[in-house]
Design a protein around this nucleic acid. Structure first.
Length: 465
RNA sequence: GGUGCCAUAGCCAAGCGGUAAGGCGAAGGUCUGCAAAACCUUUAUUCCCCGGUCCGAAUCCGGGUGGCACCUCCA
């Protein structure tokens, strides 16, 4: 598998550190608000990466943190008159709800910054001991000039970074590029004990401390949005490699932005929609489909029309999935005929294309094409009396691909007894050519939340979303 | 100022030197008691523009034009 490494700016063959195992760390949300659909992009992408690696036989340890203490958390908690802890609890719960609706599985571990103070403090101590960090009035800063590789991820040298840096008044840094590892407590702020007095960690240090706590000092893949490349991930490298003297991460993966009107969606500019906003209008699986329709490194422009397009595309895939199930119900135990053998071949071909696309730096758009090509072949099969073996063969492959992408997950075959009865009755009515009754029943079934279609092999029913 | 990315049909999008995947939408046809879904056909002689390299370029090189991002909290 090839993975584009942001650090080398090349696609590289993926070789895990330990055979058969993969460690992935992805930067998670700061839980001061509901997350927006731009935030959702990496969640979905890394969920797909993880699923794909798992189907390829790797044992994946996937770590995604929650930043549950920082300036925004404190400000927001004060505004609402609740504790930072209460704020975090609320939005962590919301995260899991929204993620679930997007088909994003919980990570192997979701560590919280506030629950890793010992690791964070120990890491800062190591940096101070090595002369890479210094204390200043209860704050601790990273001494950027003492780390020769600073800029290795973002590809900028210190002078260039320096020229763009901003110095805040009253800062206690030796150099404007130095960044805070520990911040001394200010009145009214939550704080933890440390060798430098009461305070709290800076943002960057938590990711270094927690990733290494769960994945080791060197691990395979680290992901996040492109905007995290600098300074967040650059700083993580400086902290981790500075402390350990070992390579921190083998593959850096960064996703492109989700834009609105071709401009970055971001909380600070206010041009965003939360996942919850969108859930009022669309099934979130359509949002997932939308995200998968483009390569993860490309920018992707958001609009309701595009979500609607994605929803229509998804419906076609659901149609194919349900058709496969319908064929299975009426299947016969006989050897595949010529057309069915062709379908089986097509299923293999599609799976091959799918895997080749995914192997090429997670090309979900291309992979989706393979699924659609299989769908078309499925629909070509006559409605009834198919070979069980052939249908099962195609179905297995179709489902395997859909599962990697995390789509076509809805249950649509759980008919209620009432609906089942209506379907039965309609079959009788049709036999008797009682079209009036037949149509009335179809309407009633629709009203009950199901869609009924007639096929040469009988009625086909599925639950609407 | 420094550092990157992008430009393919009405819309979205793959494509990474060998002669334009796929989806949405649209038009016509087939099937159907009527529907719906599906199937078939059509919808880019051409990939922002201008040069160059090559037997061959959407793909490589140079130069434009237009858009976006990072350098500051941000997925």
């Amino acid at each position: 598998m090839l993975i584009y490494n942001s650090q080398t700016r090349k696609k590289e063959e993926f070789v895990p550190l330990h055979p058969g195992k993969v460690g992935i760390y992805a930067c998670g949300p700061t839980v001061y608000n509901y997350f927006h659909i731009g935030n959702a992009r990496p969640f979905i992408i890394f969920d797909v990466l993880r699923r794909y690696l798992e189907t390829r036989g790797y044992e994946v340890t996937f770590v995604q943190n929650f930043t549950d203490i920082d300036d925004k958390m404190i400000r927001r908690a004060n505004e609402e008159g609740i504790t930072v802890r209460q704020l975090a609890d609320r939005y962590i719960a919301a995260y899991f709800e929204d993620a679930r609706a997007l088909g994003v599985r919980p990570a192997t571990v979701h560590p919280l910054a506030t629950e890793h103070m010992p690791q964070i403090i120990a890491l800062i101590r190591r940096l101070i001991d090595k002369g890479l960090a210094y204390e200043a009035d209860g704050d601790v800063y990273y001494r950027v000039h003492a780390f020769p590789n600073y800029g290795c991820l973002c590809g900028q040298n210190l002078e260039d970074l320096e020229s763009g840096a901003r110095v805040d008044v009253g800062e206690r840094k030796e150099d404007p590029l130095d960044f805070a590892l520990w911040k001394a407590q200010k009145p009214g702020e939550p704080a933890w004990e440390s060798p430098w007095g009461m305070g709290r960690p800076g943002w960057h240090i938590e990711c270094s401390a927690m990733s290494m706590a769960y994945l080791g000092e060197t691990f395979d893949i680290h992901g996040g949005g492109k905007d995290l490349l600098f300074p967040h991930h650059e700083n993580e490298i400086a902290q981790s490699e500075g402390a350990t003297g070992k390579p921190y991460v083998h593959y850096w993966m960064h996703n492109g932005f989700l834009n609105i009107d071709n401009e970055k969606m971001s909380k600070s500019t206010g041009n965003f929609f939360t996942v919850r906003d969108i859930a009022k209008e669309f099934d979130l699986e359509a949002v997932r489909m939308f995200m998968l329709s483009a390569h993860y490194r490309s920018p992707l422009n958001f609009s309701r029309e595009l979500i609607a397009q994605a929803a229509s595309s998804l419906e076609r895939l659901y149609g194919a999935r349900d058709q496969l199930r319908f064929l299975q119900e009426g299947a016969l135990d006989r050897a595949p005929d010529e057309a069915e053998q062709a379908l089986m071949q097509e299923a293999d071909r599609a799976l091959e294309k799918f895997n080749a696309a995914m192997d090429d730096d997670l090309n979900t758009a291309d992979a989706l094409g393979a699924l659609f090509e299989l769908a078309r072949e499925v629909f070509k099969l006559p409605a009834g009396g198919a070979s069980r073996e052939a249908v099962a063969y195609a179905q297995e492959r179709f489902l395997r691909m859909a599962d990697v992408l995390g789509i076509c997950t809805r249950q649509t075959d759980d008919l209620t007894p009432e609906v089942r009865a209506m379907v039965e009755e309609r079959a009788q009515a049709r036999k008797a050519k009682d079209w009036k009754r037949s149509d009335a029943l179809r309407d009633a079934i629709h009203a009950a939340g199901y869609t009924l279609e007639d096929t040469p092999a009988g009625q086909k029913v599925r639950k609407n979303v």
